[in-house]
Simulated scan of single mutants.
Amino acid sequence: MKTESAKEAKKRRRREPPPDPAPLPGLVDAHTHLAACGGRDAESVRAILDHAQAVGVEAVVTVADDMIDARWAVQAAHWDERAFAAVALHPTHAGELDDAARAELEEMVADPRVVAVGETGLDYYWPGKSESAASPEVQKDAFVWHIDLAKRIGKPLMIHNREADQDLLDILAAEGSPEVVIMHCFSGDRNVARECVDRGYLLSFSGTVSFANADELREAALLVPDEQILVETDAPFLTPHPYRGQPNQSYCLPYTARALAAIRGTDDETMAGILGGNARRAYQAPLQ
Score class of each variant (00 low, 15 high):
F84T: 03
A85V: 04
A85S: 06
A86L: 10
V87C: 12
V87N: 09
L89R: 01
L89D: 02
L89Y: 01
H90L: 05
H90K: 07
P91F: 04
P91R: 01
P91C: 03
P91W: 00
T92K: 06
T92L: 09
H93D: 10
H93G: 00
H93M: 06
A94Q: 00
A94N: 01
G95F: 00
G95P: 00
G95Y: 01
E96K: 11
E96H: 12
D98W: 04
A100R: 05
A100F: 03
R102V: 14
A103T: 12
E104L: 09
L105Q: 10
L105M: 14
L105Y: 11
E106K: 14
E106R: 15
E106F: 07
E107G: 03
M108K: 01
M108H: 02
M108A: 02
V109Q: 07
V109T: 07
V109H: 08
A110G: 09
A110Q: 13
D111H: 04
P112D: 01
P112K: 00
P112N: 02
R113M: 01
V114Y: 04
V115C: 11
V115H: 05
A116K: 10
A116Q: 09
V117D: 13
G118Y: 10
G118L: 11
T120M: 14
G121C: 10
G121N: 11
G121Y: 13
Y125Q: 12
Y125M: 08
W126C: 03
W126V: 07
G128S: 09
K129R: 15
E131V: 15
E131T: 14
S132N: 14
A133T: 06
A133I: 08
A134C: 00
A134Q: 00
S135Q: 06
S135E: 08
P136I: 01
P136W: 02
P136C: 01
E137T: 05
E137S: 13
V138L: 03
Q139I: 10
Q139L: 06
Q139Y: 06
Q139W: 04
D141H: 13
D141K: 15
F143I: 10
F143D: 06
V144E: 15
V144Y: 06
W145F: 13
W145V: 03
H146L: 13
H146W: 14
H146Q: 14
I147A: 07
I147M: 13
D148F: 00
D148C: 01
D148R: 13
L149G: 11
L149C: 13
A150H: 09
K151S: 08
R152G: 05
R152H: 08
G154C: 08
G154D: 10
G154P: 05
K155D: 00
K155P: 05
K155I: 11
K155L: 03
K155M: 04
P156D: 12
L157K: 13
M158W: 11
M158K: 02
M158S: 12
I159A: 05
I159R: 06
H160M: 06
H160P: 06
R162N: 05
